[in-house]
Design a protein around this nucleic acid. Sequence first.
RNA 1: GCUCCAAUCGUCCAGUGGCCAGGAUUCCGGACUUUCAAUCCGGGAAGCAGGGUUCGAUUCCCUGUUGGAGCACCA
Length: 496
Amino acid sequence: MSVRVRIAPSPTGDPHVGTAYIGLLNYCFAKHHGGQFVLRIEDTDQTRCTEASAQAIYASMKWLGLNYDEGPDVGGARGPYIQSERVKLGLYRKYADQLVAQGDAYYCFCTARELDGMKARQRAANEPIMYDRRHRGLPPAEAQARAAAGEPYVVRMKAPLEGEFVYRDRLRKQPVVKGWKEIDDQVLLKSDGWPTYHLAAVVDDHLMAITHVIRAEEWLNSLPKHIWLNEKLGFTPPEYVHVGLLRNADKSKISKRKNPTNLMWYKAQGFMPEALLNFLALLGHSHPDGKEKFGLEEMIAFFDLDRINVAGPVFDLAKLRHLQGQWFRELPPERMRAEVHRAVDARFDALLPLFKERMAFGGDFVWQAEPFYADSVSPHADDLVPKGLDKAQAKWLLEQVQQALKAYAAGENAVWDAPSLEAFIRTLITERSQPAADATPDQQAQAKLWQPKTLFMLLRVASTGKKESPPLFDTLAQIGALRVVERLGMAQQKLR
RNA sequence: GCUCCAAUCGUCCAGUGGCCAGGAUUCCGGACUUUCAAUCCGGGAAGCAGGGUUCGAUUCCCUGUUGGAGCACCA
């Protein structure tokens, strides 16, 4: 039987780098064995999934070159490949009904409130948190009647009460063993009639003839449920293989707060798909010859599922950058030209609106926008001292804003755009210009320095090296936090 | 709290019952270069702890420790 694998992302939010990672593994495995790679969209959470997100997933997979043989937008013999469409076919309900009829699942009428209360009690008593199976023993006839009467219900699996679950994951030294008593009666069908992940994935993997499920280890704990479902439904289960999770530098599961996880970010930054794929391939896996730089074709050729390292690798951007450089410098002249052009154009498009009103000739842009392209600027010391201030005062003020802006930029939810910067700086002025009640004469004098006019000119000259520029906050926004802070520091040195 | 998984330089990845523990990245130094980058050369940097098994353990086993994940009508 030919190998068939799948990647099954949920279209919530931006396309994730973890999807690319798992996708790459699956893709290489499939292609190495001459099999198929399928993309399936798991959008059974009606409240969180969006069409735009699904589109972004297709686009990012294509950008990477992880071309799926079957999927929502490319079709295939075992579609549809979007679960919400399969829900409409009544697919999952059918299997849920089968389980109920077999006595392997049952109706549960608990309300969300009731379940919350249950959890709270268990948490307080330091007990394991799981559904207490209160409706498991309901006579089927009574359950049917209540459901027929319109009472909302979910379908839960009737998990074994005892015994052990054992599974041999080819990547783990020891078989996975779990006591059934630890596993609760998972909801299979939600009260809206839609399946949960567990039911949907098992049913679809079977219907789509998936032979191997290579997924992240966050699924390892629900493996027993999935195997159980396969058995009760009479399916031959695919082989499940769990690989390590991508990590932040602090070893926690990769998150967007601590790492760029949005695949489109990499594209926008100018990373090449080849470099990103190469980098991802180096996480948890390696070229048998120890080679570091290689492309997809080569990856497919040497890929060996059994050689994957399951310890979650830390995602290290520095290494990605290095690989990007390797790939970039080897680009044929035409492609390099295109890459550079793309980057320059993007910058240009962002800047042009700022200069629209102050140009008379196209060429004016060249000198006016120079500070926005330059690595550094060198303002005249004289220009850095606003009227009515002396050198020391100017320097002091520069230092103060620099620190404030640096702290702002480092903030968790900092947005470095013109409106936010304006709000921040104006607030700063308002606050700092009010001397405290017990202020010393010196402090009172310093408070007087916090004037919008004074500070704005100071910021302008320090960050652009010129006395004239587009509106200050647009200017700061475009130059970027890193450079602005750096230039404010340079300006202080000029005033020594 | 309960359950599961993992453990080699800071990070990524090799490797072996007797290794000088190897490569990459990062950092530092040098060469080349007008300079920078690239490139090349060199340096620093690791086997979680304690017990076993064994003539010998980084490698095999156990316990602990540490880290991570899961415990939803989310996936």
